[in-house]
Amino acid sequence: MVYFILKRMFQSVFVMLAVAFLAFSLFRFVGDPITQMTGVETSVADQERLREELGLNDPFVYQFARFTGDMLKGDFGFSYRTRQPVADMISSRIPATLELGVVALIISLLVGVPAGVYTALKPRGVLTQAILMTTLVGVSIPTFVIGIMLIFIFGVQLGWLPTFGRGGTVQIGGWESSLFMIDGWRALLLPAITLGVYQLTLTMRLVRAEMMEVMRTDYIRFAMARGVPMRRLHYKHALANTMVPVITIIGLQFGGVIAFSIVTESVFQWPGMGLLFLESIRFVDIPVMGVYLVVIAFFFVLVNLIVDLLYVAIDPRLRIKDVS
């Protein structure tokens, strides 16, 4: 078990290093950092001095090591566009994106898992067919269109909910949260639903497929043959076994949630990391792009490590040694 977790951690470190390398290559090879940092009026000699100061003439591996070291120390460099420290720019945006992503994920789980279970247990029901058709349309509508439709209906036509921004937020120890004010929740609702719909359909279809697979296994048929009460059979036996693969995919989906928040944030002008990333692409603000990448990969890796731990908690085969 310890080995299993260590192995996963090792893989995570590899992924992080690879992404850091990507970010570094971006910084180093996409355009010349010196010309980006200095104005037209800077002399060639000054540019050279700066190049030397920043160590850009050092060997490649050395530069990468220093880049990674700086990152570990929390030094993410400066934005080309705003000249501010990238660390500050990103960290001030993290709460907005995380709150949006987590709420969206919770919506998708709260609706997706029960719907998946229902459609798996009643594969021929009318409601099942209706749900399946709806989700098929759901995965086919681009996220931004869902956002526009929600804005159009609830913002423009009905005027119930705000269509952009975060609404009221509360500052809690440097974390700017919209979860503690009605106004914040009102602003959060539409973006979170927009972001959650796509994940919801994926979750539902996955739970359904896995559950149907589990319902065909011998141990479920044997439990049927022993007359284990149906409710217990469905939830204690089938759903628990379904969750093992489902949890993995949900871990993978979290990356998707964060990524798609770019689109949602753009539609709702939600002041999160995604919006910052979009702006930095438009202005070719390489340092911000690079750090955003690293941060996203970090969240992804972290969530997947948690998933691995959950795995160990759920599945005794990983926890307890086989005696045979």
């Binding site: 993978l252 930095s280 390489i286 996203i296 990969a297």
Partner: peptide, 15 residues
């Protein structure tokens, strides 16, 4: 996988 589709696409575009 750690860099989802839309991010990859945006990144390449940025590069």
């Amino acid at each position: 996988l750690a860099l989802p589709a839309i991010l990859t696409a945006l990144l390449i575009d940025g590069i």
